[in-house]
Design a protein around this nucleic acid. Structure first.
Ligand code: NAD
Ligand code: NAD
Lengths: 211, 211
DNA sequence: GAAAAATTGTTAATTATTTAACAAAGAGTT
DNA sequence: AACTCTTTGTTAAATAATTAACAATTTTTC
């Protein structure tokens, strides 16, 4: 059960988000095909994911919404939660802090770092911005496990190195530049340009299919 | 050759970005293992992707950087380029426009839409914001093929419907709420919370592995 | 000029992920 | 009580993606 596929982890996070909305509406049970509809995937996929985490619904009644929320929480959350830092408080970094702030979750953005003197010491949506040189100290002091990189792409490798030196456990890199980290640090990268170009490619091929 | 794997498309976009940087530095040839190092994937993967697009390097010299850039362009770009619109000019939408603006590429953000009267008519980093009700008209008039959704999650389904009615060809949805679109429209969804929770999960399991 | 080293291109094998198939069982219906 | 419908849980099959293996060939070295 400890070896859940990466894709399953992603979907569990999404299921939970959908389930929380259902719970808020007072829905107590849900069928696999209902979850599937929301996520636009197949019901089999949903059942399989739920099987993998060892939960069992009731036949003809579906899954108990609250139980499933709790179980997903047991799997993807830590009891005490994890602390997160954002590095690079430009447009994207600021948007992230603002967005996450207020979402009740086990993950808290507790610090920000930048190298621009105008930003140091300021508080953005409740999160204080420190100078990048204070990183190691603050990460240790505040027990920060995850760093989100939103500096300009060119500075990403340097920042990633600093995060590694600061003993970060996981990195989420939003710049267009891939970074290298030691194996024991979990790295997730996402590049918006790539996504947009991917959409463009499939739009292009669809268009030429139809004509 | 028309049936390239989705993952290959994504990597081609990334290779090109890296190659452009190499070209700018005056590098004329590159080996598969060099590209692989940059993207932290295996050289085999690189060679396989390049094989799939039908390009051939020279033995012992590697790939011609400019030729490869051009070929990737032939595959993922359209000759005339495609126009893009952003719907929802809040923090994220604004960040996107600002970021893409100035990047020379075949994709141009040419319009923005919002329902907040304070934003209508304003120009954000060179892109004019229109009222959401004008969407169908502007999309047709400006020949916009791709819509990026950055409204609050709750409004995503409604916006996606409007985009579909406006005959959009592809949608990139950055809200946490999955949307449903007809089959012939290409949909790409990305949810930052999911990514962060995924990192958190693997950080958690690594931590408990080590202790 | 023969041997060694490096590098591509491609087929085959492996691994990961999704989908299909279907038995089992609860709930309603006649 | 038998029958039908629905829905879960799970195994098996199919599909997608990655990695390994290696022949072929060019360059360099001796
Ligand atoms: N804005 C977007 O929507 C968007 C979209 C796709 C990708 N990105 C990526 O996100 C990154 C940031 O984008 P942005 O639009 O927020 O840029 P930005 O220029 O607005 O912000 C960058 C911030 O990083 C800080 N910074 C620069 N160098 C630094 C360093 N060495 N150490 C610490 N801080 C440093 C700057 O002071 C600034 O505050 C870029 O790499 C870009 O690739 C952004
Ligand atoms: N900001 C981030 O870093 C971030 C991170 C993850 C996800 N997101 C997603 O991006 C979306 C936007 O985030 P944000 O931080 O930019 O929010 P925001 O509130 O700053 O911006 C939302 C914008 O959409 C406009 N809007 C609202 N309803 C609309 C409607 N019906 N039609 C047209 N326009 C409408 C608002 O006027 C506002 O300008 C959210 O759904 C969120 O899930 C944002």
């Amino acid at each position: 059960m400890k070896n859940l596929p990466h894709k399953t982890i992603e979907r569990l996070s999404q299921y939970r988000r959908a389930l929380l909305i259902c719970a808020a509406k007072g829905k107590t049970h849900i069928f696999s095909h209902e979850i599937a509809k929301i996520q636009h995937i197949t019901p089999v996929q949903v059942r399989r994911d739920i099987m993998l985490i060892g939960y069992t619904g009731t036949l003809r009644k579906g899954y108990n919404v609250q139980e499933l929320i709790d179980l997903i929480g047991d799997i993807i959350d830590t009891k005490e939660g994890l602390n997160v830092a954002v590095v690079g408080i430009g447009n994207l970094g600021h948007a992230m802090i603002n967005y996450f702030n207020g979402k009740r979750t086990k993950l808290s953005i507790v610090a920000a770092f930048d190298n621009n003197p105008d930003k140091i010491g300021r508080v953005f949506s409740g999160v204080r911005c420190y100078h990048i040189d204070e990183m190691a100290g603050i990460i240790k002091q505040d027990n920060i496990s995850i760093g989100i990189i939103t500096v300009p792409a060119g500075s990403a490798p340097e920042i990633s190195e600093k995060l590694v030196e600061s003993k970060i456990k996981g990195i989420l890199n939003y710049t267009a530049k891939p970074v290298n980290v030691p194996n024991q640090i979990y790295l997730e990268e996402y590049d918006m340009i790539t996504s947009l170009e991917k959409v463009a490619f499939f739009v292009k091929t669809h268009i030429s299919d139809n004509s």
